[in-house]
Amino acid sequence: MNQPSCLEVRGVSKTFVEEGRRVHALDNISFAARPGEFLTIIGPSGSGKSTLFNLITGLAQPDSGEIVLECGAVRRRVGRAGYMPQRDLLLPWRTVLNNVILGPELDGRSRREARQRARELLPLFGLDGFENAFPDTLSGGMRQRAALLRTFLTDRDVLLLDEPFGALDALTRRELQRWLLDVWQQFRKTILFITHDVEEAVYLADRVLVFSARPGRIVKELVIDLPRPRQSLSRLAPDLRRLEGDLLSALEMGNGS
C-alpha cells in the first residue's frame, strides 16, 4: 500500500486506571481505513471510542498492538492526525480567522499564507464576513464550522471527528451533515467520525464500525452501499431505515454480551 494517506489499527488494546479502578477500555481493535474513506464509529457510551482517538492522536500509547499513520510506523504520532473534539474549543481571544490558522501556525508555517488560504475557504465553510468576529459572538453551528475549518487547515490526511455535531439542535445538525459531505468530497480526506446517532452514522459513512460496551470491541462492520453523492435524508428514507435496523440489532448484541 503506497497510497498517500492511510490509517491502520492493528490489535490495539488499552487499559487505564481511573479513580483507582482499572478500566479495560479497548480490546483487540483492528481496522484499516482506505485513503479518502469516510468511516463512522458508533457504540454505547464508555465503549472506548474517545480512548481510540487519544491513541491515534498520540496523546496516549496502546498497551499492545500498533497504529500506523501516513503509511509507515510512526514512533512519534503526536500531531500527525487532524483532531476535532465535541466541544469546538476555539480560542476565545482570537478572531475566527486567527483561530482557523492555528494548525499551520503551530507547525511554524507562514501565517500570512495560512490566512490567505483560510480567507479563500471561509465562504465554503459559511463564515464569509465573520473573519474578524470573536467566537463567543457566533452561533453554535458557526462555531462548529469554524472548528472544522481549523481541523481541515491542519493539512493532515486523516481527520478524527469526535461527535462534532453532538451538541447541536437537530435542524442545524442535518444541515451540517450534508455540508460536511460536500466539503469532504472536495478535499478527499480520510475521515474517522464518532457518533451516537444511528441515522448520522449511516447517512455519512462508507463503512460503519459498531463498538460493543466496555471493553470496546468491534462487533460489526457495515458497508453502506448508498450511492454518492448522497441524496437528502428524506429521499433516502427506505434504504436508511433498513441499514439502521441492521445497525441497531448489532448495537443491542454488543450491549448484551
Binding site: G79, A81, Y83, R87, L89, L91, L102, L106
Partner: peptide, 20 residues
C-alpha cells in the same frame, strides 16, 4: 480539554503556554 487538543495538534509546551 483545550490543552490536550493543542497537544494533539503537535504543539510544544512553550507554544501551549504562550498561545493558550
Amino acid at each position: 480539554e483545550l490543552l490536550s487538543l493543542l497537544r494533539a495538534m503537535g504543539a510544544s509546551s512553550r507554544q501551549i503556554w504562550f498561545k493558550a
